[in-house]
Nucleic acid binder design. Structure first.
Length: 286
DNA sequence: ACTATTTCCTGGATGC
DNA sequence: TGCATCCAGGAAATAG
C-alpha cells in the first residue's frame, strides 16, 4: 500500500527520469475511470505540456507542468492575461491501494487495468495502472493543489504534540487521519507505535509528553528508514521503474499476527480499530 | 467540531 | 474442481 515512503520513492524515480520530458499524447481508459477531473480536461492539460518538476504532498504525487510552449487553440483572448503562472498546471496522482505510476518503454505489454498512458517526447511512456481503482487522477490549473495536514517529516515536536490535544479517538486513528498528519498509513502507523511502545487503542489525548516524544521520534525514524529501503512491497507496490522496495523485511508487527515479538517473543496481536487491522505487541506496548 | 461507520473496487485466500 | 464468500485498505461521504 503506497504510503509516504512509497510515494516518495516513486516521486524520486520520476524526478530523475521524466523531468524535462514533454507529454506528446494522452490515452485514457474508457471504463469508468478513477478521475477527479473530467477526462477531456486531463487530456487537454497534459498534452504538449513539459514536466517541470515532480514532488510529493502527503500521499499525493504532484507533477508540475509547464504549458508555456504548448500549442494553443487559435481562439482570440478576450483580455490580455499576464498573471504569472497562467502557463502552469499540476497533474495530481493518488495511488490509492494498488496504484502504480510507471515509466515504461512503449513495447512493454500494457498491463491489465492500465487507466492512463502518456507518451513522452523521449519515446517512453508514463503509465497509470490500478487494479482496485482506489487511486485518483486530477489536474489543477487555476489554483494550485492544496491538501490538509502537516508533513510528518517537517513538523516540529511542539506542533506535533498540539495535534493530539483533546482528541478522544485512538492514537492509531489519529495517525491515520490525513487532516492531522499527511502520509502516514496503516503500515507505518503500526510500526511507529510499536517502536514507541504505545498501544494503538490508546486515547490520543491521554498520551504523556514522554510517549509523544517517543512516537514523534519513531515516526521520523520509520519513515526515513522506509524511504531508504525504497518503501514496503506487501501487495502491488513497485516504484516508477517497476521495482519493489525492501522495507517489508524490516516490519516488526505489521502482518506478523501470531508471530513472536522480535523483542520479547510474545505473540503479536491483531485487532481491528476503526475498520483497520492493527498489529501490536501486548507486552512491549502499553 | 468531532468521531464513528459505510462505501467504493478487485484479486487472492478460504471454505464447503 | 468449482463456486461463493470474505478480506485488504485510503479517503470521501454519511450518520450520529
Amino acid at each position: 500500500m503506497p504510503e509516504l515512503p512509497e510515494v516518495e520513492t516513486v516521486v524520486r524515480g520520476l524526478a530523475q527520469t521524466v523531468v524535462g520530458d514533454t507529454i506528446e499524447s494522452v490515452w485514457l481508459g474508457s471504463k469508468p475511470e478513477p478521475l477527479k477531473s473530467p477526462a477531456v480536461v486531463i487530456e487537454r492539460t497534459l498534452r504538449h505540456a513539459r514536466i517541470a518538476a515532480v514532488r510529493r504532498m502527503g500521499k499525493h504525487i504532484v507533477i508540475e507542468l509547464d504549458r508555456a510552449h504548448a500549442r494553443r487553440p487559435k481562439v482570440r483572448r478576450t483580455r490580455s492575461k499576464t498573471s504569472p503562472g497562467k502557463d502552469t498546471a499540476q497533474f495530481i496522482v493518488h495511488l490509492g491501494m494498488t496504484g502504480q505510476l510507471l515509466v515504461s518503454k512503449p513495447d512493454q505489454e500494457l498491463e491489465k487495468h492500465t487507466h492512463l498512458v502518456a507518451q513522452l517526447a523521449s519515446g517512453r511512456e508514463l503509465r497509470f495502472v490500478d487494479p482496485r481503482r482506489f487511486g485518483r487522477l486530477a489536474v489543477h490549473t487555476r489554483n494550485g493543489f492544496e491538501t490538509a495536514g502537516l508533513e510528518p517529516l517537517d513538523v516540529g515536536f511542539e506542533i506535533f504534540v498540539s495535534l493530539f490535544r483533546g482528541r478522544k479517538t485512538p492514537i492509531k486513528s489519529a495517525l491515520l487521519n490525513q487532516k492531522l498528519l499527511r502520509g502516514v498509513g496503516n503500515i507505518y502507523a503500526d510500526e511507529s507505535l510499536f517502536r514507541a511502545g504505545v498501544r494503538p487503542r490508546c486515547c490520543a489525548a491521554s498520551l504523556t509528553r514522554d510517549q509523544l516524544r517517543r512516537l514523534y521520534d519513531s515516526i521520523q525514524q520509520v519513515l526515513n528508514q522506509a524511504i531508504a529501503a525504497g518503501g514496503s512491497s506487501v501487495s502491488d507496490y513497485v516504484n516508477a521503474q517497476g521495482e519493489p522496495g525492501f522495507f517489508q523485511f524490516e516490519h516488526r508487527v505489521y502482518g506478523r499476527e501470531g508471530e513472536p515479538c522480535l523483542v520479547c517473543s510474545t505473540p503479536v496481536k491483531r485487532v481491528v480499530i476503526a475498520g483497520r487491522s492493527s498489529h501490536y505487541c501486548p507486552l512491549c506496548q502499553k
